[in-house]
Deep mutational scan, measured.
Amino acid sequence: GKMTGIVKWFNADKGFAFITPDDGSKDVFVHFSAIQNDGYKSLDEGQKVSFTIESGAKGPAAGNVTSL
């Protein structure tokens, strides 16, 4: 299901971020390909987002990341 959280930090050079979920679970890795914005895919620290949890090769990662 959809979860919500806050972007903890975003590394534009490497194209990934971490989200701190609102439910208090541990921070979730985000690859820029999961960001659903049109055009430039970036996130801002402190931004509120919704996302799903996908199981990636290196463990859980956020999918369908959308700005709220």
Rank of each mutant, 00 (worst) to 15 (best):
G1M: 09
G1S: 11
K2S: 11
M3A: 06
T4M: 05
T4K: 05
G5E: 01
G5Q: 00
G5V: 02
I6D: 01
I6L: 04
V7H: 01
V7W: 03
V7I: 14
V7T: 01
V7N: 00
K8N: 07
K8L: 11
K8Q: 07
K8P: 01
W9I: 04
W9T: 04
F10K: 12
F10T: 15
F10Q: 04
N11D: 10
A12W: 08
A12D: 05
A12H: 11
D13N: 05
D13T: 08
D13K: 06
D13G: 06
D13Y: 05
K14E: 05
G15R: 09
G15V: 02
G15M: 12
G15L: 10
F16Q: 04
A17V: 13
A17E: 00
F18H: 07
F18I: 14
F18C: 15
F18R: 08
F18K: 08
I19L: 04
P21W: 03
P21A: 03
D22K: 01
D22N: 04
D22V: 04
D23Y: 04
D23H: 03
G24V: 01
G24M: 03
S25P: 02
S25N: 04
S25Q: 05
K26F: 05
K26A: 08
K26S: 09
K26C: 14
D27T: 07
D27I: 06
V28K: 04
V28L: 11
V28S: 02
V28G: 01
F29P: 03
F29I: 15
V30F: 13
V30Q: 00
V30W: 15
H31D: 14
H31C: 15
H31A: 14
F32M: 09
F32K: 05
F32G: 02
S33Q: 07
S33P: 04
A34K: 11
A34P: 03
A34E: 13
A34I: 07
I35E: 03
I35S: 03
N37C: 14
N37Q: 10
D38T: 07
G39A: 09
G39N: 08
Y40N: 11
Y40H: 10
Y40M: 09
K41M: 11
K41Q: 11
K41I: 13
S42G: 09
S42Y: 13
D44M: 12
D44G: 12
E45F: 13
E45M: 09
E45W: 08
G46Y: 04
Q47T: 10
Q47R: 07
Q47K: 07
K48E: 07
K48Q: 10
K48V: 08
K48G: 04
V49T: 01
V49K: 00
V49C: 04
S50L: 09
S50P: 01
F51E: 00
F51K: 00
T52Q: 09
T52F: 09
T52S: 08
T52L: 13
I53E: 04
I53S: 06
I53C: 15
E54S: 03
S55K: 06
S55G: 13
S55T: 07
G56P: 14
G56W: 06
A57H: 14
A57C: 15
K58W: 14
K58L: 15
G59R: 10
G59Q: 13
G59P: 14
G59E: 15
G59L: 13
P60Y: 02
P60K: 02
P60T: 05
A61C: 15
A61H: 11
A62P: 12
G63K: 03
G63M: 09
G63L: 09
V65L: 10
V65R: 01
V65W: 01
T66N: 14
T66M: 03
T66C: 15
L68C: 15
L68M: 09
